[in-house]
Amino acid sequence: MKRAAPLDTAFGRAAIQLTLVILLLAGWEGGVRAGWIQAFLVGSPVGIWGELVRDVSNGSLFYDTGITLYESIVGFVVGTFAGSLIGLGLWYSRFVARTVEPMIVAFNSVPKIAFAPIIILWFGTGLTSKIALAISLTAIVALIAAYQAAKEADPDLQSLLVTLGADKDQVFRKVIVPSALPGIIATFRINVGFGLVGAVVGEFISSQHGLGHLVFTASSLYDLNTVWLGLFTLMAIGFGLYFIIDLVERKSLPWKLDSVRQDLRV
């Protein structure tokens, strides 16, 4: 058996990750100070830190983060929920499903970001338009995934339910929904990102607040440190949401977990 590397532990990996980040930031700062890199174009870690301290102490960073989080989470939840429900519902009628399928494909083939200007026109420059944009991005992904997953439910399991005397509603509740659930939950990971994309792009186009607003206005003023602050905050949000989704997945699909984890040595 191959011996595991001594650093291949949770602690060891975290130490390596931290070292890499510190090296990168130190190199960046050093490069700026030595004059190899232009702070004007890339900013500098110390400058970003200063920006962070300022925006945290005056509270504006929390406010912008809250706005963007609110828009993307509401958009994600509403879009994913509605899309999944419609997608699952299409299982009920092959006729309806086959009729609307090309329309869904057509709608999906437009880059949804291109709808942003009309959505702003329709829903105004406030939070609603960003939420609407996030919904339009997430709903279609959820719809297609849920419909696909419902279609792929094992026909033998459905037959079994029928031989036990189940009606269509029972087949739907006892086989279709649970077997589509892993597919639906897998889209949560993608859609959490799309929710953020919707919120930030909406803010780019027209807004008074939010991290998208922060990044957009700062970059037009060549204030690179503030741009980085916005980007790093978005990264932190995305990272946090991803872990929440991961937790939701593990809690809601206990039957998918390996009781005995097996590592395949390649």
Binding site: D156, L157, L160
Partner: peptide, 18 residues
């Protein structure tokens, strides 16, 4: 004989989420 037969296949057809 829907609802009156017991059907068993080569696949056990257990619902994996139950």
């Amino acid at each position: 004989l829907r609802g009156r037969v017991g059907y068993m296949m080569q696949k056990d057809l257990l619902l994996p989420w139950r």
